[in-house]
Amino acid sequence: MISAQNIVKSFGTLKAVNGVSLEIRQGEFYSLLGPNGAGKSTTINILSSLIPADSGKCSIKGHSLPDATDQAKIILGVVPQEIALYGDLSATDNLMFWGGLYKVSKSDLAVRAKKLLADFGLSDRSNDKINTYSGGMKRRINIACAMMHDPEVLFMDEPTVGIDPQSRNNIYDTMVRLKGEGKTILYTTHYMEEAERFSDRIGIIDNGSIIAEGTLEELRTKGGVQESVGIECASVPENLSALNGMEYVRSENKLSFPVISVKSSLPQILQKCFEAGIDVTHVDVARANLESVFLALTGKKLRD
């Protein structure tokens, strides 16, 4: 659905994108995760035909860029990083305006605007000027404007930056809904929890290059980041032969098992513990998150 092959873009001496390649399948939620200045927005700007790549090839649903820009733009909705709305117009007016730039009938636009306002919980403020909205409400309308023409593909460039929890949750609900509708989404963020929560696949981008790509599990494996399962018990039996072949560390009434994946290892660990007659009182897991994956892959923290 979305394809980029070795795209390069420089601004003066700065190489903002340095050989990015990615393939996003139809209906896939793909997150591009990286720190500020990693090249996420530039990649989105190239894929949305806003700026041309210096070299490389890219296409949206088979429409090669920049040759078939017009066809690509029709099926594409872009949520920009900044709140790009007309503050002196109402939410409805903004929605109607942005939607009207695509070939959508006025009646369809009105229906769509009403639905989106309801979905984003802003029906009661629909006729208020955007300037009177809170930051979070503006963010919601910012996203809604990109959805007015019901695009097949959505590019969302850090859509949740600096918003309140209520708005964030509302936007998360929208993500779930969009995934359910089978939209193809390219999502950039530097919030790991968002990438972990929604992504089918994640690309980690740093210094203009994608350094790793895959599902969360795959990334953990690639990063070689270990997780652990902790088993607390009333007392640890002397004979732990049932645990032979398993790597663990014993300390008073707790056993710690370092694993590659908690998800795949936890049932086996619990089974063995029961077989060893361990009276389990508490289980805790330490999962490797994207932060640790990112740290392992790049040698620096995501928010550095």
Binding site: L50, V78, A84
Partner: peptide, 13 residues
């Protein structure tokens, strides 16, 4: 400055 021009350029206009 406000970013609306950039957003306009994302659209078919």
């Amino acid at each position: 400055e406000k970013g609306t021009l950039k957003r306009l350029l994302y659209t078919p206009i």
